[in-house]
Amino acid sequence: MTLKTYKPYTKSTRGTIILDRTGLWKGKPVKSLTAGINGSYGRNNLGRITSRHRSAGHKKKYRFVDFKRNKFDMPATVIRFEYDPYRTSNIMLVEYEDKTQSYLIAPQDIKVGSKIYSGRKKDIEIGNCMPLIDIPPATVVHNVEMTPGNGGVLARSAGTSVQIMSHDQGYTTLKLASGEVRKVQSLCKATIGAVSNPDQKNIKIGKAGRSRWLGIRPQTRGIAMNPVDHPHGGRTNGGRHPVTPWGIKTKGKKTRKNKNTDKYIISRKKKRGIN
């Protein structure tokens, strides 16, 4: 998938860079694999805003993507590739031998008509899913499980992948895209290849309207406010640490809440600017 630019007829088109979605399905998704979702849009059960700068955005349907790949030893044929408004990667519609259909995350370099499999000791080909113990080291995978049978949770966004480092005593060592190295049970499944749509990181929204389509409301910088409205207000904040309007530090704050798997982390992700 390539990038698409415009001639600078307006100020917004001068800076706009979006994805050229030529080759993706232009019709409607499979009705049985979609559903409508009532979003909260940043409101709690009382209707009060608890997460700022969120809105509904454009109307969209949720596609049910199969992250578990539990149809073992049954070939599936790739029918087409589709855009999914709820994720950065593309998805692909596959049809199994028993005529059932599913949506899967589309890996890079897979073609329409390709046959993919899920199960033990399958060929190391793009799109095939198998336990980590059956995949040789140095292989690039995505949609990796952290608990056997629970479905893939690692490396699902556009262009991401995980590299298998080694196998030892029932655990597989993985190197994540962030630079973190961690152990995962070797019976966890993973899919061969990297996730599609790697150019997603290069897009430039170009105008405020496109952010509104994505469900993002405008945000006013704290330093542009008065001191009574924000700790950064008045343009004389003395270079203080970035905080929220209520004085809570934001920059550098740890947001990861699940500490149950910390014992499996061998080394943390690399800090920016440090090689």
Rank of each mutant, 00 (worst) to 15 (best):
T5Y: 01
T5V: 13
K7A: 12
P8R: 07
K11R: 00
K11P: 08
T13C: 09
T16S: 13
I17S: 04
T22C: 10
L24N: 03
L24W: 09
G27F: 10
V30C: 07
S32C: 00
S32R: 07
G36A: 08
N38V: 13
G39C: 02
G47W: 07
R48D: 08
T50D: 13
H53Y: 15
K60N: 06
K60H: 01
R63A: 11
D66V: 03
N70Y: 00
N70W: 09
M74H: 11
T77F: 05
V78L: 01
I79Y: 01
E82V: 14
D84T: 06
T88V: 06
M92E: 12
L93E: 05
E95S: 04
E97T: 13
E97M: 12
E97V: 10
E97S: 14
E97L: 14
K99L: 08
I110Y: 01
I110Q: 02
I110C: 06
I110A: 12
V112D: 05
S114K: 11
R120S: 11
K121R: 11
K122E: 14
D123K: 11
E125I: 07
E125L: 14
G127A: 09
C129R: 02
C129V: 15
I133V: 14
V140P: 04
V141R: 05
N143W: 03
G149A: 06
L154G: 10
L154Q: 05
R156P: 01
G159H: 06
V162K: 10
Q163G: 01
I164T: 03
D168H: 07
Q169T: 09
Q169P: 00
T172N: 03
T173D: 09
T173H: 07
S178F: 03
V184Q: 04
V184P: 11
S186H: 07
T191H: 03
T191M: 13
G193C: 12
A194V: 01
D199K: 12
Q200T: 08
Q200L: 10
I203M: 13
I203N: 02
I205T: 13
R210Q: 03
G215S: 04
I216M: 12
R217S: 15
P218E: 06
P218W: 02
T220C: 08
R221A: 06
G222L: 08
I223H: 07
I223W: 08
P227K: 09
P231T: 12
G234H: 09
G234I: 09
R235I: 09
N237Y: 09
G239R: 02
H241V: 13
V243P: 10
P245L: 05
K249G: 12
T250F: 06
K253T: 13
K253W: 07
K257I: 13
N258Y: 00
K259Y: 01
N260G: 00
T261E: 12
T261F: 00
K263Q: 05
K263F: 10
Y264S: 12
S267G: 02
K270W: 02
R272Q: 13
